[in-house]
Design a protein around this nucleic acid. Structure first.
Lengths: 346, 346
DNA sequence: CCGTCTAGGGAAACCGGTTGACTGAAACTT
DNA sequence: AAGTTTCAGTCAACCGGTTTCCCTAGACGG
């Protein structure tokens, strides 16, 4: 009855299989620089299975091999966008034999801490960085002690290791939808300056607005939060001097939270959605279907983004050359009731 | 110019300080079983500082010491409740010299995976488990190979290691508020059966409803999601046979998402909030202030919960006896516009 | 029949910390 | 003055893997 539920070690497996530590290690890691009889190989696998053997990650890391762990740095977890990305990353990592850890990097505040805890202490083999922004302290740390990494969602120009989505396309999709409904004056609520997807979305919005010949396409920038959305919406909806009606009939926002804030602002001004103002957001999550009215959004391939970033990073760790990647899945318009022809019920 | 930004090791620090590895290790770990001159101590710290020394977590773990990492297992990260808990845990862990990792355990689906990856591979010293539920596979794994752990939010009866909030109090607070507004028939939207906070909230609701002498206090159970809220609200608001008005004038929900779903259901039925139905949710997050109408909620001390759980776990790891803990911070009513006297504008 | 080659696998040196046993010198006792 | 403490730190054996180099036996070639 003196149970000993101690972890099985490599030597235990070796002993049970009747071979040496070295052989077990090589077999389990699938190295082909060693020839073993199929029968031995089978015995080793059987013994490992029977003992529930799991290599000690620390020992492994120490011995010069990798930790088989990655870390995903996101700017804010209360933004569900990043949760979806994290899920995609976790899943794909698992399929590739890696563990994906999640760390919140409050817009650079904690970057150094995380970097130290995770990279310097040798807990991970590489970083998936979704929290990049210009002059982010992390960029410094990375150049001082290089570690494999990719940037996802928010890219770093010229790094040659960006994994992104077709963000420009999301603006085109949203604008085409609004234009086809008859909107000719559309406002865009962008994110903070310097953040890539925000910038790209804005540029694409302005470019396509011109292509469509819109009469007005004003832009306001603010935080990716509800409050940011409120402030920008109020700015964009303020009637021109002497006027009484808002200068735009539709709003297109960079984030979901901004869309929620914008809707609140529209109501606050005594305007109706979508009769007076149509609203289109980005990212599709369960909550948007239960807003009042349900929000039309552009769904982005967030899960795929996380997965693609992991693939790129793991390839890099294994020595493959790195390059920018764009997730092929196209943004997809999710039609709900927050958009309609100007002045009309949905 | 051949920079070598290689990590500084213990021996490097030792060499620079002119002492042995052992001394450095003991000094840096603040062991008092060793006497060192203050001057030596200073030299060691200086050298470590100068070299930016960070102990290799793997080596440390291997040498029998701890990894100085914990893992927090949450059932769903898109529930912002758990994000707040995670932040509290991360921060307090950091203050105690630990790193708190975050893992999503989709209601037991991934528990074994996480357990293997994190515990069996020796990446963490202990677990903070927020995803417990009856017959959760994790409970098995824990009894097979014991590892320090606490349960938070969702408790496990009789485990003697539960860290919780005064959830019963949140029901009392919500009911008192509604009662003082004149509501005498209140419905409760509970979470799935078997989940502790959900059960406790329900019991407290029923008990206090009786104490207040409410004329009706029906309960419906559903998922913690928006859709769960919709279904429960429709059930609770269905007029009695032959009747035409809903049997309750207010709804109190177990989760925030349920409240959002409930609000959507109320609107769907053509009823107004709060004139026809008042709604109170649990947990206070930025988004609730931007709903239509802004939602009255009971704010729970989630951040404190995360912090308290870490404190308890770290104490346990360091050998202290473990016991159930209740976070002392009281739930707090956040008054907004989703509640009013029955039939009245706010 | 002897030498060489190759398949199959083992021995041991690491990796970077931690820890308990141990030592040399100084200070204190008696 | 010799023995005993205390002080201040050192030595070396681990921890559990990985990896390089080496060994051995049989096959094969000549």
């Amino acid at each position: 009855m003196p149970e000993q539920p101690v972890r099985a070690r490599l030597v235990d497996v070796a002993e049970r299989a009747g071979v040496s530590k070295a052989t077990v290690s090589k077999v389990l890691n699938g190295r082909q620089d060693l020839s073993v009889r199929p029968e031995t190989r089978r015995r080793v696998h059987e013994a490992a299975e029977a003992l529930g053997y799991r290599p000690h990650s620390g020992a492994r890391a120490l011995a010069g091999a990798s930790t088989h762990a990655l870390a995903l740095l996101v700017p804010a977890l209360n933004n569900p966008t990043y949760v979806t990305i994290a899920r995609g990353a976790y899943q794909r990592a698992r399929e590739l034999g890696y563990l994906s850890l999640l760390a919140e990097d409050f817009d650079g505040q904690e970057a150094d801490e995380s970097f130290n805890d995770l990279v310097q202490e040798g807990r991970v083999d590489g970083l998936l960085i979704a929290s990049a922004r210009p002059s982010h302290p992390l960029l410094d740390a990375l150049s001082r002690s290089p570690v494999p990494h990719v940037f996802l969602n928010r890219s770093v120009e010229g790094s040659g290791r960006n994994v992104t989505m077709d963000v420009a396309r999301s603006s085109v999709t949203a604008l085409d939808h609004l234009h086809s409904l008859g909107h000719r004056a559309v406002g865009h609520i962008a994110g903070p300056p310097g953040i890539t997807p925000s910038e790209v979305r804005k540029e694409a919005f302005l470019r396509h607005a011109e292509e469509l010949g819109l009469s007005a396409a004003p832009v306001a920038s603010g935080d990716f939060t509800e409050d940011g959305g409120v402030a920008c919406a109020l700015e964009l909806l303020r009637p021109a001097d002497g006027g009484t009606r808002p200068p735009v009939t539709a709003l297109y926002t960079s984030s979901l939270a901004q869309a929620i804030g914008a809707m609140a602002a529209v109501r606050h001004l005594g305007l109706r959605i979508p009769e007076d103002v149509s609203v289109v957001g980005n990212d599709d999550l369960p909550v948007v279907a239960h807003l009042s009215p349900p929000l039309t959004t552009v769904a982005m391939p967030l899960y795929e983004l996380g997965a693609a970033a992991v693939e790129a990073l793991v390839a890099a760790i294994q020595g493959a050359p790195l390059g920018d990647v764009v997730v092929p899945t196209e943004p997809c318009l999710m039609l709900r009731r927050s958009t309609a022809r100007p002045g009309e019920r949905p």
